[in-house]
Design a protein around this nucleic acid. Structure first.
Ligand SMILES: [Zn+2]
Ligand SMILES: [Zn+2]
Ligand SMILES: [Zn+2]
Ligand SMILES: [Zn+2]
Lengths: 310, 310
DNA sequence: GAAAGAGGTCACTAGGTCAA
DNA sequence: TTGACCTAGTGACCTCTTTC
């Protein structure tokens, strides 16, 4: 998990610590608010292997592919993956990776086209404003546009990577998530209207980042899942049978099937800015509760519960 | 890359400790000064299950969890735990472990974010300079920062040295537990001005290590409890009436019955809404964020909160 | 150039070991 | 049982390459 949770702070620091590159004095740019990792909901650091993920899931996926790992779930192949337990079941973590669309074929290189970014940001802002997503998706924001834009970023890029990745590519079932991609992607139409010509301003990103932080997710469906002609898909027998995840929304989440969505938004408000004490406690309480009893999703916290979680 | 900071440093050194590198120059890496074990005040070797602990307490906690041990105190459940008597009362040792925040959900893997390290170091240095702790904590130093950042990981010290250092104040009554947690987190404001940009320098660590040693504690509350796997639970329900501690993960954690925390609540009010899945996810995300990088929240953990999240 | 992601690096920790 | 030691991973950072 990247520390960066974000916020400004994080960003600034980033600069500060040279790490970020350009560091030279120039303000390091704010990074695009990718939202939550689609695999474990930690803070995503970018689009990795096709979807927004954290560094951990990125690395995990990479290692899995490289070593052609075959994991086995000791439970029911239905472990919920989140930042706290992601290392407890590799099988399910990997499944989640592929279900969400990670694939070596999904790799995108180079900078994200301005147009795409703008659209994504705009979309996010709107969502934020409304506080609700059309589809009732939970964490309101998501950059559909961005995700779908895949097409934008060249697809053919593969060849380039091939070399580097070859070892890798083979493996990935690269497709399992078709569904995802299909339903998920908002159609991306680039009407290159110049409007956007202006550049995306930092402020916007800033704002989004702040209200965003890891609390929100931007779901970037795997847009790359294209018929991969290249992959040989050799023996990749993953048990990807699981397409069962029927997401009715365009943004598949890591929620179990029984998961039901409904609109809500009360939270969206919370979503903004820093959390005050109460909110903090609230969240912690819930988190604790969840930690101990993840079963009831439809939770109502009452006194008892509050006591419960202490 | 900062190699500067990171060099090799293999484990060997860790153990060997003694050498501590300095001799060589930057070469051997110093491990971060984790300070004292939060359970027994021995030298901590790292952040284990969420907090800085020694190898002994780490192993003890692990075994306790694995075997689902239920210990009983033959006294008043108030035994003071320190390096010399930690094996006298398992019940109290385990209680201390959990009180201090050890939890399977608090596990942090991977490298400790630079930022966190920097903060911790800075804080430690300041404390050292002042020579006083805000909370009147007994052993002067502690890496609150580190601790608070929970998510972050703390730093490590070269453990090894127990020998050398403990002698000193070693024993420290390790603090009346409860309070500990209370200590506040120093607010973290990053002005990481360039200074930090560089990597943390060895000298700093060196200095801190020396003045540190077992005398210090780094408090890392574990507040990132997140939901476990969704699984079916079933079987492993220990008889613990204590639902609070039923983890359906493979590492069930059990706290002693007598374990008390206190109410807190504040939440109740907020706590009342009904959460739907989406909200839930949202909350989880926030929790994740908090867990990972609480820094940016202007949160300051007070006793209540600390206790609360436990 | 700047922005982004793949890959690589290696600081770190859960767990397993086994002498004491 | 304990806890010093090791090992297999994990993931925070960084470098390199691609794309805008
Ligand atoms: Zn992730
Ligand atoms: Zn599983
Ligand atoms: Zn200890
Ligand atoms: Zn006792």
């Amino acid at each position: 998990m990247v520390d960066g949770n974000d916020e400004i702070i994080a960003n600034e620091q980033r600069d500060s610590d040279l790490s970020q590159k350009s560091s030279k004095g120039k303000r390091s740019r704010l990074t695009f608010p990718f939202g939550a990792c689609r695999v474990c909901s930690d803070s995503a650091t970018g689009i990795h292997y096709g979807i927004a993920t954290c560094e951990g899931c990125k690395g995990f996926f990479k290692r899995s592919i490289l070593r052609k790992e075959k994991y086995r779930c000791y439970f029911d192949n239905a472990c919920l993956i989140n930042v706290a337990n992601r290392n407890r079941c590799k099988a399910c973590r990997f499944r989640q990776c592929t279900n969400q669309g990670m694939s070596v074929d999904g790799v995108k290189m180079g900078r994200i086209p301005k147009l795409v970014k703008e659209r994504a940001l705009k979309e996010l802002q709107e969502q934020k404003t409304k506080g609700t997503t059309s589809n009732g998706e939970i964490n309101g924001m998501q950059a559909n546009t961005l995700s779908c834009s895949s097409s934008d970023r060249s697809i053919d890029n593969d060849d380039s990577n091939t070399m580097e990745t070859d070892s890798i590519e083979a493996q990935v079932p690269s497709v399992p998530m078709q569904d995802d991609s299909s339903n998920t992607c908002a159609k991306f139409e680039v009407e290159i209207n110049s409007s956007s010509s202006g550049s995306i301003d930092d402020h916007q990103i800033d704002v989004l980042n702040s209200s965003f932080n890891s609390t929100v997710e931007s779901h970037l469906p795997a847009y790359n899942s294209l018929p991969d002609m290249k992959s040989k898909t050799s023996a990749n027998d993953r048990e990807d049978e699981i397409k069962q995840f029927t997401y009715r929304t365009k943004y598949p989440t890591f929620l179990p099937n029984d998961f039901t969505v409904d609109e809500t938004d009360g939270l969206s408000q919370l979503a903004t800015g820093l959390l005050n004490n109460e909110e903090l406690q609230y969240v912690k309480a819930i988190a604790n509760k969840l930690g101990r009893n993840s079963l009831n999703l439809d939770t109502r916290l009452n006194d008892e519960e509050a006591r419960f979680i202490r």
